[in-house]
Design a protein around this nucleic acid. Structure first.
Length: 296
DNA sequence: CGATTCCCCTGATAGC
DNA sequence: TGCTATCAGGGGAATC
């Protein structure tokens, strides 16, 4: 499940591999993936365009496209749960793409490639997505930048401009419980279920603790934990708890040293008490019942 | 306004 | 063995 660190890792990989490349072919195996155009239009527009940049905003990937005399376009991708881009050499075998360099998750054939953009260097940019939750929107630069899914996003937690005073301001006005707030993309962008559990454990905050009730001192701890956990995860190239892989097919290593995520029943790395799992809204949260207590 | 539920999907796993 | 039920989960929309 790509969150900020996984998306950042993919974006950095893509920047090296595909910026400057021209799209020469478009194969769309799951038409519903593209929300903005029908498959024929989508392919017609993309063909011949040059990829001039790749950026991340929250968990979204934005690719800049330009044609010799055309308007500048942007391609927005949200990978949701199981989506990830893979760059490599590919061969179409029937209706399945076969990787010619390494395969994917132990299989040579990747049955889950939903989109393949073939590039002018003979490689291909594939989007693999088991559960078909990913989405793509293509449009003019301004149009994409003004989409509510980007406009409404909260601050980028790893940016220098995201300071404690800004965090304090938004946290004081936030009514919801800590776990819910961290998962809210319009509160802070990029945090998902893995890192919200990890951040709360590190700052010793109970998932249901109302965030606005935290003292300045505890809010500072939380703020530091957000930066620390996300930075560490970016350094370790993300978490591969299930099927996340980077754009070269390599797993991330954060999961090996994680504290609590999906560790119900195991001892807390800090105090040894059993880690508990609990539903928080529609998500499963994991935390230590002993060192993450709700306070008044 | 916030909280909850449904929906989109498929693979893994548990239960029979 | 093989079937079915359940769950996982990002996030937007509809609903309470």
């Amino acid at each position: 499940m790509p969150e900020l660190p996984e998306v950042e890792t993919i974006v950095r990989g893509l920047r090296k591999k595909i910026v400057g490349r021209k799209i020469v072919g478009v194969w769309l195996g799951w038409p519903k993936l593209v929300k903005s155009h029908n498959p024929a239009e989508f392919a017609r527009i993309l063909k011949g365009k040059k990829i001039t940049g790749v950026e991340r905003r929250g968990k979204n990937i934005l690719m800049d496209l330009s044609a010799p005399k055309g308007v500048e376009l942007k391609l927005l991708t949200h990978q949701k749960m199981t989506g990830h881009f893979m760059v490599g050499k590919w061969r179409l075998a029937g209706d399945k793409w076969e990787s010619l360099n390494g395969g994917h998750l132990g299989h040579k054939k990747n049955s889950y490639i939903r989109l393949m953009l073939t590039l002018d260097d003979g490689r291909g940019l594939g989007l693999s997505d088991v559960r078909k939750f990913a989405k793509i929107i293509l449009g003019e630069r301004k149009e994409i930048e003004n989409l509510p899914e980007l406009k409404k996003l909260g601050p980028e937690p790893l940016e220098r401009g995201f300071t404690f005073s800004e965090f304090e301001k938004i946290a004081k006005n936030k009514k919801s419980a800590a776990k819910r707030a961290l998962l809210d993309q319009n509160f802070i962008a990029g945090i998902g279920n893995i890192y919200s559990d990890e951040i709360l454990w590190l700052s010793r905050i109970h998932p249901l603790q109302p965030i606005s009730s935290l003292s300045k001192e505890r809010l500072q701890k939380l703020f530091k934990a957000i930066k620390w956990v996300l930075q560490k995860a970016v350094r370790l190239r993300g978490s591969s708890v299930s099927d996340y892989r980077d754009s070269s097919g390599k797993p991330g290593s954060y999961a090996k040293t994680r504290f609590v995520y999906r560790k119900a029943g195991e001892p807390c790395p800090r105090c040894g008490a059993k880690i508990i799992s609990m539903k928080v809204g529609a998500r499963t949260g994991h935390f230590c019942g002993k060192c993450q207590k709700i306070s008044a």
